[in-house]
Simulated scan of single mutants.
Amino acid sequence: MNMVTETTRDGMTWYECEKCGLLFDNVEDAESHEANCDAEDPSYIQ
């Protein structure tokens, strides 16, 4: 299931992971991340 949201900021289109809110400028990157995102344990956030 695709949870990526398209959003526009500063005149650019971004793709946001709805699970963790990370933004990507490439929809394939966003979908790849979202497919592997475990929002229950965002280990990369300090």
Rank of each mutant, 00 (worst) to 15 (best):
3 M>F: 02
25 D>K: 15
23 L>T: 03
39 A>E: 10
16 E>F: 00
21 G>P: 01
3 M>V: 12
41 D>I: 14
11 G>A: 06
43 S>P: 00
34 E>H: 05
6 E>H: 06
38 D>C: 05
20 C>R: 02
5 T>A: 10
8 T>W: 09
32 S>R: 09
6 E>Q: 15
42 P>W: 08
30 A>I: 00
28 E>Y: 12
33 H>K: 05
13 T>D: 09
12 M>K: 15
30 A>P: 01
34 E>P: 00
8 T>D: 10
19 K>T: 07
2 N>P: 08
37 C>H: 00
5 T>I: 15
22 L>S: 07
7 T>C: 09
6 E>M: 13
3 M>P: 01
40 E>H: 14
37 C>I: 02
8 T>I: 14
26 N>D: 15
36 N>M: 14
15 Y>Q: 02
18 E>S: 15
12 M>V: 08
41 D>H: 14
41 D>A: 11
29 D>Q: 11
2 N>S: 15
26 N>M: 08
27 V>Y: 00
14 W>H: 10
22 L>Q: 10
18 E>C: 11
1 M>V: 11
31 E>L: 04
35 A>T: 12
3 M>D: 07
1 M>H: 12
19 K>M: 09
32 S>M: 09
28 E>T: 12
36 N>P: 00
7 T>K: 11
12 M>D: 10
21 G>Y: 02
1 M>T: 12
31 E>D: 09
38 D>Y: 10
35 A>E: 12
3 M>R: 14
4 V>S: 04
45 I>P: 01
7 T>V: 15
11 G>H: 06
